[in-house]
Computed example of a mutant assay.
Amino acid sequence: MRYLIAALTLFIASQTFADGKTQKIAELLKAQGLVDTWAQQIESGKEYNKKISQQIMGQIMTSLAPNADFKSRFDLASEKFIESTIAPWTPQDMITVWADFYGPGFTEEELDQLISFYSSPLAQKEIKVGRLALTNFTKHFQELNQPIVEKATNQYIADLQVIAAECNCAK
C-alpha cells in the first residue's frame, strides 16, 4: 500500500510539474508571438480551402446552367466542403503539441529565465531547440491535415457530380 501511495504521489507531482512547464512554455510562446501566428495560420488555411472550393465550383459551373434549387444545392455542397477541411485543432492544442516537442529541452527554471531574459545566452539555446521542435511540429500538423483535405476534396467532388447529374442542366 505504501508503494501505491508513493507511486500515486509521484504521478500527481509529475502531472503538476508537466502542467506548470506547459504553462510556462505557453507564456513564452505568447511572448514570442507564436500563438497569434498559429491562429493566423489556421485562418489562412480556411481561406485557402475556400479559394479551392471556389475554383472547383467555377470549373463545374462552366458546363452547367442550374436552376435556383440546384444552385442552392451546389452552394451547400461548397459550404460542406469548406467546413470539412477546417483543422480540428486550436492554437491551445498546438501549444500542447509544441510543449511535447520543445519542453524536454528546458527545465522550468530555464523557461523562467527565457521569459524574463530572452536576450541572454540562454536565448541562443532556445533558438536552437526551437528550430528543431519547429521542424517536428510542422511535419506533425502537415501529416495530420493531409488526409482531412484529401477526404473532404474527394467527398466534395462526389457531391458536385451527384448534384450535376440530378440537375440535368448542362449547357
Rank of each mutant, 00 (worst) to 15 (best):
F141T: 01
N136V: 00
I42C: 06
E126T: 00
T37H: 12
A13M: 08
L28P: 01
A133Q: 02
Q41A: 10
L8Q: 02
L114P: 10
F11R: 05
Y156T: 03
I12Q: 03
Q155D: 13
L111F: 04
G33S: 03
T135Y: 15
F101A: 00
E43Q: 08
F106H: 04
N168D: 06
K24R: 14
L4P: 06
I25P: 14
L132Y: 08
D159Y: 01
P91G: 05
S119V: 07
A77I: 02
I52D: 13
I86R: 14
S84H: 10
I163H: 04
P121N: 02
K125D: 04
V129N: 02
M61N: 12
F141E: 03
L64E: 12
D100I: 00
G105T: 05
F106P: 11
T153K: 10
G45N: 06
C167W: 08
K46E: 10
E47N: 11
E43K: 13
D112A: 05
Q161V: 04
T9L: 13
A170R: 14
F70N: 11
N145E: 08
Q23G: 10
T138C: 04
G130E: 00
A99H: 01
D93G: 06
G130T: 00
N67W: 09
G130D: 04
E47A: 14
Q146G: 06
I86G: 14
A18T: 01
S63Q: 13
L76M: 12
Q40K: 15
L122P: 00
G103Y: 03
A87Y: 03
G33F: 10
A7M: 15
I56D: 05
P104S: 09
I115E: 05
I5M: 04
V97A: 10
P66Q: 05
S116Y: 05
G33P: 02
Q59E: 04
M57Q: 14
V97K: 09
Q23P: 02
D36L: 02
Q146F: 11
I127N: 12
F81N: 03
Q40S: 15
F70W: 06
